[in-house]
Amino acid sequence: MAGEILDNQGRGDAGWSWPPIHPEGRKYGVIAVAISLVPLLILDWEIIGWPLLMLSAGVFAFFRDPERVVPQADNAIVAPADGIVSLITTVEPPPELRIDDGSGHAGLPEGPVTRISIFMSVFDVHINRAPIAGTIRRLVYIPGKFVNADLDKASEENERQHILVERNDGIAIGFTQIAGLIARRIVPSVKPGDTVAKGQRVGLIRFGSRVDVYLPAGTDPKILLGQRCIAGETILAELGTQGLLEGISQ
């Protein structure tokens, strides 16, 4: 299915298949299986071995990397992460995405913007994707704490990585990968200067975390607080589109 064009008129061929495992997770899955086989095959401790073997399957599942159908509308900003929209608030973007970094490329402008926070539990896919097509202008890693990623202060206190993507027309989107209580490593797969497609994989965060997205001024979310997002598929916002949207939890 990868690379195939599908549309809302029925063009293309879609079907379910087992998702592949991200290379970063294969070694952890193999290690988990090896550990579970020791009590099963050597010590004959089935009461321990079988739960460990089931946990090994969970490790492989955590690193699953399913294909996604990415909307190609030019003004669409897609979700960079799977998970629940846990916060929508107005803030100043992080200084790492705003200040002059000496690269010759401008950062995000000064002034408050809408920040959408997507919380990923250990059951969500943890592959992160580019919200727009463009060039990676910044990739800034910040060491920090590991407080609950669902808390607002995690944006300023936790270990995190800021990414700035700039379109050909100069519009830029900043987003931040944030480690959480269990997450202990942010793994990028891009670097400054790389050109990415909308929805392209840009990295992952291991074992539960959060991603913040900073919308450009004059753009409101097209999603609701509490809504579930699918990375590369859910449209977070449409550039230049504003307006209140309401939903009912039921």
Rank of each mutant, 00 (worst) to 15 (best):
E92T: 10
G134V: 04
H105V: 13
D44H: 14
V30R: 13
Y141S: 12
L224D: 05
P221S: 13
P39V: 10
W45A: 13
A130F: 01
E24C: 08
G193T: 11
G10N: 10
G144L: 09
F175D: 00
K198I: 11
G134A: 05
R98M: 15
G107N: 03
R137V: 10
I21N: 09
I5T: 15
A130V: 02
Q161G: 05
I178S: 05
E96L: 08
V85N: 05
Y214K: 11
I132S: 02
L215M: 11
A2F: 04
N128Q: 14
Q161C: 15
G193R: 12
A57S: 15
A2K: 13
P109K: 11
D212K: 07
E24Q: 11
H105Y: 08
E67C: 04
G25N: 05
P66Y: 08
A179W: 02
I173D: 06
T234Q: 05
I163P: 00
F175S: 02
V59K: 09
W45N: 12
D212T: 13
K145E: 15
F175G: 04
G174W: 04
D65K: 13
A217H: 06
I35Y: 00
V33D: 01
Q161D: 10
H162I: 11
G58I: 13
L55Y: 04
A61R: 10
V78K: 04
P221W: 05
P80Q: 12
P221D: 09
R167T: 00
E4L: 12
F123M: 10
T90G: 02
R228Q: 11
D220Y: 01
D7F: 05
S17A: 15
T135A: 13
S209H: 09
V165R: 04
